[in-house]
Design a protein around this nucleic acid. Structure first.
Lengths: 231, 231
DNA sequence: CCCTGATAGTGACTTTGGTCACTGCCCCTT
DNA sequence: AAGGGGCAGTGACCAAAGTCACTATCAGGG
């Protein structure tokens, strides 16, 4: 059990190069929590109680608008940490978090984490690195929202998926969507209907075959061309 | 001269609580550069050579799209630092920077700054704080782009200006736009024409009086209502 | 086996955003 | 005084985004 916790800690970039002893010390100050799919970890504006690490499953960090629309800022899988920032600057959470699947997380209270950082200065540097990559991703989101259409964002997402976990077949590259259209829409910064429509259209244009949540990319180079054309 | 440099350093949050001696040491490793209005400090993707501090003037950090549109990420005035991140993670600049006015900046090379951070660990913590507030601002931009219309963003901007440096008059609150419509459009993530049109429309609706770059907010509460309605 | 709730597809429509082309204005330079 | 460059306003379009309402499908539970 505690072993398991140690393994998770070791896998997170933040604590990658600590000694066994240090990991054990940290593990002792760690608690575990489970969340069911769709369950809520915290809401935007909640005061920050500590740092989270994903042990298994996936967590969605998102903004919620007054009218109920969501905009995903990040999806964190096993080994990722999140909410590092409010832990440091003492502010509230700038966004909400919910479980995309049944998920297990580790939790370290603000105080414990801050103390740990004081004792291990290089962890502080790691925090900067992690926050830095997060910042780059946010800039990427801004770029997409500001410069591209829903269609282009959807294509970009499919291409990313195809790259990451697509399996080649005789028809093309098979990709599995692991979320509902609703969830995809939240990632793309749009609404369900547009995801549905754009998928249909891409199919009609011959780039894809869509069958439920399975997609076969039939014309990868064509898609790549579409992504950048007439921007 | 060097005195002046010290004063600027003292004013930047990053180095706020250093001793006189430390400031002098840092000032010695600092160089000054001047940029004319519209001049270019660096482009997106340039490799990062060091940290910038604004001494006077204003710097615009922005993304540039393939089609030539710009999206402003931040405007930094005197006392602000920027490009902290690539200095740390060694990556390239994620965005471009240009001078909004004639501007003087201080420059510290990557190596010098990293060494300085190693000698002064609390500067590292400051970096986290600065990067943190930057991250919060980026999240705010994403929220605006994803959830609001150009009209609402424009209203929000005017309200911010009115708050920050509006002067009351008998007609209403006087606000001065310090930039062209083009620049405003880049901040709002849209194009010149929409800024122009929306300003006219707000005037026609009686919320504002526009006269060149001077705006008189006639109906502040009304504007505030408009900002949130029918989101 | 039926009911229910979540998910997806789609037509019709409205609003918003963006493009293009052109005009007018002001200021600076020559 | 004339010309030119940058900036602003606007009409006419067109395309993209979003809304609403409805239907279909499917999985699981009672």
């Amino acid at each position: 059990m505690s072993n398991d916790t140690g393994a998770v800690l070791k896998k997170t970039p933040l604590f990658a190069n600590l000694t066994e002893g240090e990991l054990r010390a940290l593990a002792a100050r760690t608690s575990r929590k489970r969340f069911r799919q769709g369950e809520h970890l915290f809401a935007e504006g909640d005061s920050c109680t500590g740092l989270f690490l994903v042990a298994s499953g996936r967590i969605r960090i998102f903004k919620l608008s007054a009218s109920g629309r969501e905009q995903v800022l990040a999806v964190e899988g096993p080994g990722s940490s999140f909410a590092e920032l409010p832990v440091f600057d003492g502010g509230n959470y700038p966004a909400a978090a919910s479980a995309l699947e049944d998920t297990e997380v580790l939790f370290i209270s603000r105080k414990d984490f801050q103390n740990f950082c004081r004792e291990h200065p290089d962890v502080g540097l790691k925090v900067i690195a992690v926050v830095g990559s997060r910042l780059r991703r946010l800039v990427g989101i801004i770029e997409e929202l500001s410069f591209t259409t829903v269609r282009q964002r959807l294509i970009a997402l499919i291409l990313r998926l195809a790259q990451a976990d697509g399996t080649p077949s005789n028809e093309g590259i098979r990709v599995e969507l692991t979320k509902s259209h609703q969830d995809l829409a939240a990632e793309l910064g749009t609404v369900r209907e547009l995801v549905s429509r754009n998928l249909s259209r891409l199919q009609a244009e011959g780039f894809l075959d869509v069958e439920g949540r399975k997609i076969v990319v039939k014309d990868l180079p064509g898609l790549k061309r579409e992504q950048t054309s007439t921007e």
